[in-house]
Each structure stands twice: as structure tokens, then as C-alpha cells.
């Protein structure tokens, strides 16, 4: 069974949902405190949502300095699957593991609602085997989710098939309707929507499981 590490920063608040979602997707999952520096034995890494280090300075800005992040970067550099959800996406951009930045939502609106996403790439660890064009209903819950990057970066994202998910209806002013992107290799993904909150029919949608199952399936060793 694949083993997932869910990194917990002071101020993370979606880590238990992430563990539950990963377990429903077929992995075992454990919480790993941000001061740890060892991820050996883990096949997957998740940076969950919340407000790491209070989101002081900028969302995700201080989390990149947590001791675990060098290990996460090394894990990613060796091809390990990493996904950052919401605040985790912000941490990955601040850490330079994903290009661009997440800016305050257009009109300063805090969004907490279901969103319809369209799969834009099947190459990433989060969407492997999920057909391009597939529509998924997954909630968003954020204030700083407006994806920004310069034109050259956007061109590169588009040319390299690094745009993973787009919003059917852009809620926050994100460039190119971007809801999630990957790194060049496709093994590091950041997305603002919360797939771990769409894993139960009772709660309205199981579309998040589609992504988490793809992610669990991408584990380097079993």
C-alpha cells in the first residue's frame, strides 16, 4: 500500500481531511510535523490547506522556511509525487517548486463554494489517466487564489502541458482560468480546489476521489 505524508504546519487546518481522502483513495496516510526532516518510507507528499504560519507576510511565504521543506524539495527532485492543495499550492509557489504566484482574489471576494473544474492535462500525477475535458465538481475555499505569472511563464505552462485544471467559470481572476498547475516533470502539482472535500456522495461529490486515486496510483513504489 502506498504511504502518504501529509505535512502539518502551524496553522494548517485541512490535514485530517487530506488523510481521510487519501485513505479513501487507497493509500495509508500519516501526519508529519513541519520540523521533521525525514520523509524516507513515504511514496507521496501532500501539503494541505489552511494558513501555514498564519499566512503572515504572504500566504505560504514563511512555510517554505520550515525544516521539512528542503526534504520535500529533494523528494520532488527525485521524482516523488507532491501535491499542494490550496494553502499547499501557495507554499509550493513561494518555495519556487511551482512557477507564478497566488494573488488576492479579484474583487477581494472570499470564495467558499462548489466549483466546476475541467481537466486540462492528463500528464500530471494528479490527473494521470483522467481524460482531458473531464468535468469535476470540487469545492474551493480561499481568499488568495488568483493565479498570476508573467507572459513567458504562461506560454511555457501552456506549451509544456503544465496547466492541470481550469475553472469552468473563473471565480477569482486567475490567469487563463487556471485552478491548478504542475511542474515541468508533472510530479509536483498545486491546485486551489479541495479534492479531499469531495470524497463522499453524502457530502455532495466524489469527484475529488478521481484526482486522489490518480495521485495514489502515481506512487513511485508500492
Amino acid at each position: 500500500m502506498s504511504r502518504a505524508a501529509v505535512i502539518v504546519f502551524p496553522g494548517s487546518n485541512c490535514e485530517h481531511d487530506a488523510v481521510s481522502g487519501l485513505e479513501l483513495a487507497g493509500a495509508s496516510a500519516e501526519l508529519v510535523w513541519h520540523t521533521e526532516t525525514d520523509l524516507s518510507g513515504y511514496d507521496l507528499v501532500v501539503l494541505p490547506g489552511g494558513f501555514a504560519h498564519g499566512d503572515y507576510l504572504r500566504a505560504g511565504a514563511l512555510a517554505r522556511l520550515s525544516p521539512i521543506m528542503d526534504t520535500v524539495a529533494a523528494f520532488a527532485a527525485s521524482g516523488g509525487p507532491v501535491v499542494g492543495i490550496c494553502n499547499g499550492f501557495q507554499v509550493l509557489t513561494e518555495a519556487g517548486m511551482l512557477p507564478g504566484a497566488l494573488q488576492k482574489n479579484a474583487h477581494l471576494k472570499f470564495h467558499c463554494k462548489d466549483s466546476t473544474l475541467i481537466v486540462a492535462s492528463s500528464r500530471s500525477v494528479l490527473t494521470r489517466g483522467v481524460a482531458v475535458g473531464t468535468e469535476l465538481s470540487i469545492p474551493i475555499n480561499h481568499f488568495s487564489g488568483s493565479y498570476v505569472c508573467d507572459e513567458a511563464t504562461l506560454q511555457r505552462l501552456q506549451d509544456n502541458d503544465q496547466v492541470v485544471l481550469r475553472y469552468a467559470e473563473n471565480p477569482n481572476g486567475s490567469l487563463d482560468d487556471i485552478a491548478g498547475i504542475s511542474n515541468d516533470a508533472g510530479n509536483v502539482v498545486g491546485l486551489m480546489p479541495h479534492p479531499e472535500r469531495a470524497c463522499s456522495a453524502l457530502l455532495g461529490s466524489t469527484d475529488g476521489l478521481v484526482l486522489l486515486q490518480a495521485f495514489v496510483g502515481a506512487a513511485v513504489s508500492a
Binding site: 494573488q103 488576492k104 482574489n105 479579484a106 474583487h107 477581494l108 488568483s146 498570476v148 481572476g173
Partner: peptide
């Protein structure tokens, strides 16, 4: 060139 929703508000 970067949108500033706070400034506009």
C-alpha cells in the same frame, strides 16, 4: 500591471 483588488476597493 499586477491587478491590485485592494487598491481598487
Amino acid at each position: 500591471g499586477i491587478a491590485d483588488p485592494e487598491g481598487s476597493t
